[in-house]
Amino acid sequence: MAQHLTDKDIENIVELLDYWSLDEKLTWERLCKAIELQLELVPAPTRQTLQKYARIKNAYDQCKKPSKALNVNINKRNKLPASLKIAQTKIEALEAKNARLEKENAMLLEQFVVWQYNAHKYGLSIAKLNEPMSKKSSD
């Protein structure tokens, strides 16, 4: 039976991909092993399980195809002192994370437009859409 991942698990896996070393080849098998070792999810989720989650799949695809500018930086990085290599690695990871977050944000905005259209189409008012969520009573 496929393992179900919590929102926190998904966030941790995406974060793991954000900081995946550019020097290490990314494969689904290596990602599953890293999840098991670093996130201590035992048994580790399978490739098929991971691919079902859009955030993980998008982060994986983004990490798998780094930009050409990053590939040029890898060659330059080999000539840098150790302290600058560390800084460069961190900058590259943050740039990759930023690109992933921008893509996720664009996808969420597209989803919002669809919801906005459907709300208008089915006669939901702004007032109804802005109603606060009901609080559960603790009785």
Rank of each mutant, 00 (worst) to 15 (best):
Q48L: 05
Q48W: 06
Q48S: 09
L50Q: 08
K52C: 05
Y53E: 13
A54V: 10
A54Q: 15
R55P: 01
R55C: 00
I56R: 03
K57F: 04
K57Y: 07
N58Y: 09
A59N: 00
A59C: 04
Y60R: 10
C63Q: 13
C63T: 15
C63L: 10
K64R: 06
K64N: 13
K64F: 08
K64H: 10
P66R: 12
S67F: 00
L70Y: 05
L70V: 07
V72Q: 11
N75R: 13
N75C: 08
K76R: 07
R77S: 06
N78D: 06
N78W: 00
K79M: 11
P81V: 03
P81G: 02
S83F: 07
L84D: 12
L84W: 03
K85N: 06
I86F: 12
A87E: 09
A87G: 02
K90S: 06
E92D: 15
A93N: 13
A93F: 05
L94H: 07
L94R: 07
E95C: 01
E95R: 09
K97E: 08
R100M: 09
L101A: 04
E102D: 05
E102H: 02
K103P: 00
N105C: 03
A106Y: 03
A106S: 07
M107C: 06
L108T: 10
L108D: 10
L109N: 11
L109R: 13
E110N: 08
Q111Y: 05
Q111S: 05
F112V: 12
F112S: 11
F112A: 10
V113R: 13
V113G: 07
W115I: 03
Q116W: 02
Y117A: 13
A119C: 08
A119K: 05
H120R: 09
K121Y: 06
G123Q: 03
S125L: 02
S125W: 03
I126W: 09
I126E: 15
A127R: 14
L129E: 09
N130K: 14
N130W: 01
E131K: 15
E131H: 11
E131V: 08
P132D: 14
P132N: 12
S134C: 06
S134W: 04
S134N: 14
S134D: 13
S134Q: 15
K135T: 05
S138N: 14
S138F: 01
S138K: 13
D139H: 08
D139W: 05
D139Y: 09
